[in-house]
């Protein structure tokens, strides 16, 4: 393929977006940032897909007048990836909205956005409700987790204002 043309640059951009998104998902510990990384990842994939129909001198696949069908047809970009990307974008929006709703609820309950903390608290809750000791995968003695949870509860007071601001921030960024 011709890496020097427009498509080469856009392709590099798409692959870069995919890389950034994946790295963000793996390396970030903040759930909201993970969702943002997911958005970047999805845009990268969509860019990659829409590039599949791109054509050096292509025009938009819309017939402007009746008589030019055969002429215009040869010039057009492939319309199928465009339709697919439209579908994929809408799917992405739905998933992101669901993720955001879950994050809002979790934030309201655990008062943190940190993935490892959320996970630890969930494992603790799960074990408590099931009446079993924590599984070894949590890699910490029961007393440690318990004390951490209590510390969390004590810290809630000063963190309160900050938490509100965060909720608003999330809401605001959605609205925007």
């Amino acid at each position: 393929m011709n890496m020097t043309g427009v498509e080469g640059i856009v392709l590099l951009g798409a692959i870069g977006l995919i890389m950034i998104g994946l790295a963000g998902l793996f390396m970030s510990n903040n759930v909201f940032r993970m969702v943002l990384a997911l958005v970047i990842l999805e845009s990268g994939a969509n860019l990659f897909l829409i590039l599949a129909g791109f054509h050096g001198l292509g025009i938009a696949p819309i017939f402007l007048s009746n008589h030019a069908i055969s002429d215009a047809g040869h010039m057009m970009n492939d319309p199928i990836p465009q339709a697919l990307v439209l579908t994929a974008i809408v799917i992405g929006v739905g998933v992101q909205a669901l993720a955001l709703a879950l994050i809002l609820k979790i934030k309201a309950h655990y008062n943190t956005l940190d993935m490892s903390e959320i996970r630890q608290q969930m494992e603790y809750d799960l074990a408590k409700n099931n009446d079993v000791t924590l599984p070894a995968s949590a890699q910490s003695p029961d007393s440690l987790v318990r004390s951490k949870v209590i510390c969390q509860a004590e810290q809630t007071q000063p963190d309160h204002i900050q938490a509100k601001a965060d909720v608003q921030q999330i809401g605001g960024s959605v609205n925007g």
Binding site: M1, N2, G5, E7, G8, L11, L51, A52, G53, F54, H55, G56, P61, I69, S70, G73, M76, N77, D78, P79, I80
Partner: peptide, 14 residues
């Protein structure tokens, strides 16, 4: 990239 096959795409356009 840049020269799509358009196996189905060109059929649909026509």
């Amino acid at each position: 990239f840049g020269q799509p096959l358009m196996l189905v795409g060109s059929d649909i356009i026509q």
